[in-house]
């Protein structure tokens, strides 16, 4: 895709001024990534489509907040997408009282070799640093970030007590931070 981060930043700036053409262009340039994000977390196409619309409405409304946000434009967009998808996931669970049974349809928690390669090249150190963790700890961090799993979900998935999972996660995050600071 020829669209650069600078292009996306430019689109967001124009959206903040109410430019619908820029909004349309941003949608075309980024909707595949954001939809993939929703689908990974929600695992339901219809719900993901609805959340995708909510995401772009948020982008339209809050584009003026981007400048002071301190992250790259794609990170900003994916964060909105991820948070919106997770919020929806939790709401669905709360109303449907499904409880913590997210595991059945989950894809493998690890990346494919290709994804890992992309992640390594694009993302700098985090993949490397995740690799330094115990595989199940790294899997828990990935599950939280990529699948939007809660502590309870993760505890169930990894068959450990909730408090153990909390400790795992916190230690893992601390290790990640130290590793990435090197």
């Amino acid at each position: 895709m020829p669209t650069t981060l600078a292009d996306i930043e430019d689109m967001i700036a124009r959206i903040a001024l109410g430019d619908r053409n820029a909004f349309s262009a941003l949608h075309d340039a980024t909707s595949a990534k954001l939809f993939g994000t929703c689908l990974r977390i929600l695992k339901d196409r219809a719900i993901a489509e609805d959340v995708l619309q909510v995401i772009y409405m948020k982008v339209w409304r809050h584009a003026d907040r981007y400048a002071s946000n301190g992250t790259s434009p794609m990170t900003w967009l994916i964060t909105i997408a991820r948070n919106s998808a997770i919020d929806r996931l939790r709401r669905i669970r709360a109303t449907a009282e499904i409880g913590a049974e997210p595991d059945e349809n989950l894809p493998a928690s690890g990346p494919t070799p290709e994804q890992a390669a992309i992640a390594r090249s694009e993302a700098g150190k985090i993949t490397e640093c995740l690799d330094e963790l115990e595989p199940d700890r790294a899997g828990a961090v990935r599950g939280a970030h990529l699948d939007g799993l809660s502590y309870a979900d993760l505890a169930q998935r990894h068959a450990v007590p909730l408090n153990t999972m909390r400790t795992w996660l916190r230690r893992s995050l601390q290790s990640l931070r130290e590793c990435m600071a090197q």
């Binding site: 939809f35 794609m74 994804q115 992309i118 993302a123 990935r142 970030h145 990529l146």
Partner: peptide, 17 residues
């Protein structure tokens, strides 16, 4: 957010309808 964003590369590109 930035630190963890590296994992975002694992979110696939799937074009919506």
């Amino acid at each position: 957010t930035t630190r963890l964003a590296g994992m975002n590369a694992e979110f696939p590109d799937i074009a919506p309808r």
